[in-house]
């Protein structure tokens, strides 16, 4: 679905934000990029979606070189959900989601009732169709993230790129968003996302990369990559990786140096 070869980016010469990034993602798979703050995860995502131009390397979408695909066509293949941001004007949620139809309509075109239907179906898909009439400025952060995903789905993409979809969300909403991402991948959508939580990678990822100081220091399945050594190297803290029998999965927890008990 998406193939990235030796991608590099720098704002200033000789100061690369990231360099020599390569990965390959099959349809229906989820790829999570982990790494501490400021390692260039968001910059990498911006390069993938075309908001920034990489310095070298190439990106292939569905086997075609990204630059050879028209900008509008790219938006039909790939949808992007940015980190939560402030919306100045209070568009109704349905009209906001409707904007996802833009790459399918001519420049002077207006969305018709079929496009409205697609937008409504996308809202139903992520389970927030009850928000359709509400102004976008009055819904919660968790709801906004789901609405943003609905808008991305309205583009009918085959690749979904999310920048920290679970940041700013409470415990329950984090899980809700992840479940929906997993469900979408189950239907054949490829997903690339960045995250701060190794646990989330354990939960839903097929492929995980750990980014540190401009490059991937590990890439593979969650079990291969989220190891004590790599996590400690990336985040500079001690961690414990252990299987919790009650929920039948592996978790990664930070601990105090020498495993001291907190008072």
């Amino acid at each position: 679905m998406i193939e990235v070869n030796h991608l590099s980016f720098a704002y200033e010469k000789d100061k690369p934000v990231f360099s020599d990034i390569s990965f390959h993602l099959q349809p229906g798979k989820i790829f999570t990029i982990l790494g501490p703050n400021g390692t260039g995860k968001s910059t990498l995502i911006k390069c993938l979606v075309g908001l920034l131009s990489p310095e070298s390397g190439d990106i292939h979408l569905s086997g075609e070189k990204k630059e050879s695909i028209s900008h509008r066509k790219q938006a039909r293949i790939m949808a992007y959900v940015p980190q939560a941001h402030q919306i100045i004007f209070p568009f109704p949620v349905l009209d906001y989601v409707l904007m996802g139809r833009s790459p399918h309509l001519p420049v002077f075109g207006q969305p018709g009732s079929k496009d409205y239907l697609k937008a409504m179906q996308a809202l139903k898909k992520v389970g927030v169709d009850y928000l359709a009439d509400r102004p976008i400025s009055e819904i919660s952060g968790g709801e906004f993230q789901l609405v943003s995903i609905a808008r991305a789905l309205t583009q009918s993409p085959s690749l979904l790129i999310l920048d920290e979809p679970t940041s700013h969300l409470d415990f329950g909403n984090q899980f809700k968003v992840l479940s929906i991402i997993e469900e979408l991948a189950g239907e054949g959508l490829s997903v690339v996302m960045s995250s701060h939580f190794p646990d989330h990678a354990f939960l839903i990822s097929h492929l995980v990369a750990v980014m540190q100081e401009t490059r991937f220091i590990g890439i593979g399945t969650a079990d291969e990559v989220i190891t004590k050594e790599l996590m400690e190297q990336a985040y500079g803290i001690d961690v414990v990786i252990s299987t919790v029998s009650e929920c039948g999965r592996t978790v990664c927890l930070p601990v105090r140096k020498n495993n001291q008990v907190m008072n």
Partner: peptide, 12 residues
Amino acid sequence: ASGEEEAHSLGI
């Protein structure tokens, strides 16, 4: 008006 990055990612 909904956002520059958003508009870009929507093919504009």
